[in-house]
Design a protein around this nucleic acid. Structure first.
Lengths: 188, 188
DNA sequence: CAAATTTCTTAAACTACCTTATTTTTTTTG
DNA sequence: CAAAAAAAATAAGGTAGTTTAAGAAATTTG
């Protein structure tokens, strides 16, 4: 639980005892490489905090083509928040790209924490806000950069990610074909 | 203030007296067509709720090209939230596309409301969450749809907006040139 | 309401990125 | 560690979207 505690305290102040109460609501789970953690049209009963490993969140478009929306690694949260919060069926798929160990929290416990621990309300509010801002920036980048520029930014912004994730998946995240990414890489 | 009250009550429950307290913190302002409400590198001291009119939020990319990020109309909030919340300099420009009347709230009053009125905390939390979800969906659409599909979706999702806003601005929002949008429109 | 300005349209040449197909390299699995 | 499977590279031909430029239509302004 140390990793989660540290992450929470990097964002808000909270006493040891309340932090303990908070952490007690999480369960440790491990997913094998390639295992699906969530698939569309299922209920999203949990969200997860990664202790180790890496997952991708993706959708299928109308032509059945996969598109990676985000990658998540150590000390990041992931889950279909939209469906978790609104109690709707999942619209995302989530798959482990490596063996991945997480701390999971159920919606029941999530709601309990929101009621019982005001610091958790602050914590999640700030998390969501930051997510909103990073989404905003991604929209910006998609509007104003070419594929090549987006790739260079990706390398700069996530140098460790680009080592761990296959080009196929990076291409999908950038919105281009693996073949075109391969060509960009050769150029330089 | 009726419009703002209605909007707040469509999202959370709040007593008449506290709603009154809340609304008292806003000031009415009017901006002329083409007037800039915010420009990059200024301080974002306020965010706004639109009573009437329409604004666009945009950036310049590295080549000096404008890109529209969002349009906002009646009963929507707008502002550079990122800079408002984090007290950093604005990274967005905001311009009125029509004569626009708004209710504005200063950061000082915003912070006061967060402290004094718990319902306001809930209200803004839900607003931010919804913004996050709609950003998520926009990223999705940019990844999986062609320009033509994005245009059709725009027409469907915002039928009244497409009447009020010039094609030039719509093209910029969709991430294409006005010439190409014009060509798409001719096709059907 | 005429002149000036901005927006929209059209069209041809061009480029970024896609498709398809084949080969090579890397990773996974029994 | 060999066989099978998946990922990456290469290349040719195709298409979605851009650029440039010029004229037509609409809007703004004096």
């Amino acid at each position: 639980m140390r990793q989660l505690s540290d992450h929470i305290r990097s964002i808000i102040a909270i006493s040891d005892s309340r932090l303990q109460l908070l952490c007690d609501k999480f369960d440790k789970n491990t997913f094998a490489k390639k295992e699906h953690i969530l698939q569309t049209k299922n209920n999203t009963s949990e969200v997860h905090f990664i202790l180790s490993g890496c997952v991708r969140t993706y959708i299928y478009d109308l032509n059945g083509v996969e598109h990676n929306i985000t990658f998540s690694i150590e000390n990041w949260w992931f889950g279909d928040l939209q469906s978790f919060i609104n109690k709707t069926l999942a619209s995302f798929n989530i798959q482990a790209l490596e063996e991945t160990t997480v701390l999971s929290i159920s919606r029941k416990n999530w709601d309990k924490l929101l009621k019982e621990i005001p610091e958790f309300v602050d914590y999640t509010r700030i998390l969501f806000r930051n997510t909103m801002f990073s989404h905003e920036n991604r929209i910006l980048q998609n509007l104003s950069y070419t594929a090549e520029e987006r790739y260079r930014h990706f390398l700069q912004d996530y140098p460790n990610l680009s080592q761990r994730i296959s080009q196929k998946h990076i291409a999908s995240y950038l919105g281009i074909t693996p073949e075109f990414l391969s060509m960009l890489r050769r150029k330089k």
